[in-house]
Design a protein around this nucleic acid. Structure first.
Length: 332
DNA sequence: AAGCGCATCAACCGCGGTTTT
DNA sequence: GAAAACCGCGGTTGATGCGCT
């Protein structure tokens, strides 16, 4: 005999998640962390399968998600990584903090594919389309941009280090020299997350194929959003467009951080002096007022079935998670 | 204002590899 | 070792929104 089924699929809810479901899932993960997914629906009081919960969390509710269109640089990264990895969206996503495989996949299919085709580039092979040679004469040599995987891997690629200490408002510097100081873990799928073309080609690509008017740039520094109630925050016009719902709530300053090395999710209070230090540093909560507010937010509208009474102080949880839009809809 | 078509993206489905019994 | 469930991934779908006529 094998295992017992994780859940009885009869009677499970499908389709779009409601704010209430989001809230339940968030509360559960707040209290338990990312737990065995098959147990989550039952324990969280959700009529969903664990798979659906995991998907909802990873693609939508995770607080470290960066919402909004991909920036130019992210698009370039995606294109280059796709040239190296193909449709391995999760691997590509792992090089783009705050982005999910689903998001990248969607963006590829809806935006990048079209742009590449428009440029006369085959989005699958990353080579000029056969019938587009004329069109590509004015374009950068795409075979230079994206060489076949085997060739690329035998070369010392250009390299971009995602160093959190580097001013995030600037795009990562592209080194034209090979480097052995990559900060990323070396693994089987280690890909130097670097566009395989030089800066001139990059500029050509940007100027010829990527209209900056089309893609609002989200700078890396917007991943970690300073949440001081900004007088001119354009994102405050709509909660649904907000990068972080807590901005909308105008709670005390903090920023979401994420230690991508082990996927730990943390909240980093913006008041900390060391906020620019390595993201892997576990931030502590020292704003009792903020904590009490969050406690109140969660407890204020507790589930009537009592499954998710969030009766502990948030300070006891090392991994804090929350969501943007669902908080807006679910808690208010 | 209504109808239509297109674009977007959240969510589902199915598969393959891994883990557990 | 086999069987069955779990998990994660990639492909696809369908609901919704938006722009155009």
């Amino acid at each position: 005999m094998g295992r017992q089924p994780c859940c009885d699929k009869v009677g499970l809810k499908k389709g779009p998640w409601t704010a209430e479901e989001d809230k339940k899932l968030i509360c559960f993960i707040l209290t338990n962390g990312q737990y065995c997914w098959r147990a989550v629906p039952k324990l969280a009081g959700l009529l969903r399968c664990g798979k659906s919960c995991r998907l909802r969390w990873t693609n939508y509710l995770r607080p470290d998600l960066k919402r909004g269109l991909l920036s130019e640089y992210e698009e370039k990264m995606v294109i280059d990584l796709h040239a190296q990895l193909g449709n391995r969206w999760s691997k590509i996503a792992s090089h783009l903090p705050g982005r999910t495989d689903n998001e990248i996949k969607n963006h590829w299919n809806t935006h990048i594919k079209k742009k590449l085709k428009k440029m006369g580039i085959d989005p699958i092979t990353h080579k000029p389309l056969p019938n587009a040679t004329e069109q590509t004469q004015n374009q950068p040599n795409q075979q230079q941009l994206h060489q076949p995987l085997e060739e690329e891997q035998n070369q010392q690629p250009l390299q971009v280090d995602f160093d959190p200490k580097v001013d995030p408002s600037k795009e990562p510097e592209i080194s034209l020299e090979s480097s052995t100081t990559s900060t990323e873990a070396r693994g089987e799928d280690q890909i130097i997350a670097t566009p395989q073309f030089d800066t001139m080609e990059l500029n050509q690509l940007v100027n010829n194929g990527f209209c900056t008017d089309e893609v609002p740039i989200i700078e890396p520094n917007e991943i970690l959003m300073p949440c001081a109630p900004s007088s001119s925050s354009t994102s405050s016009s709509s909660s649904s467009n907000s990068t972080n719902i807590l901005q909308d709530l105008q709670l005390p300053d903090f920023e979401w951080c994420c230690d991508y090395s082990d996927s730990s999710l943390i909240i980093n209070n913006n008041n900390h002096e060391d906020k620019n230090s390595n993201n892997s540093a576990m931030a502590l909560w020292d704003d009792d007022d903020f904590i009490s507010k969050l406690n109140w937010l969660i407890n204020e509208d507790d589930d009537s079935d009592g499954n998710q009474v969030f009766d502990g102080s948030l300070t006891q949880f090392s991994r804090m998670v929350t969501d943007s839009e669902s908080w807006a809809f679910g808690l208010f």
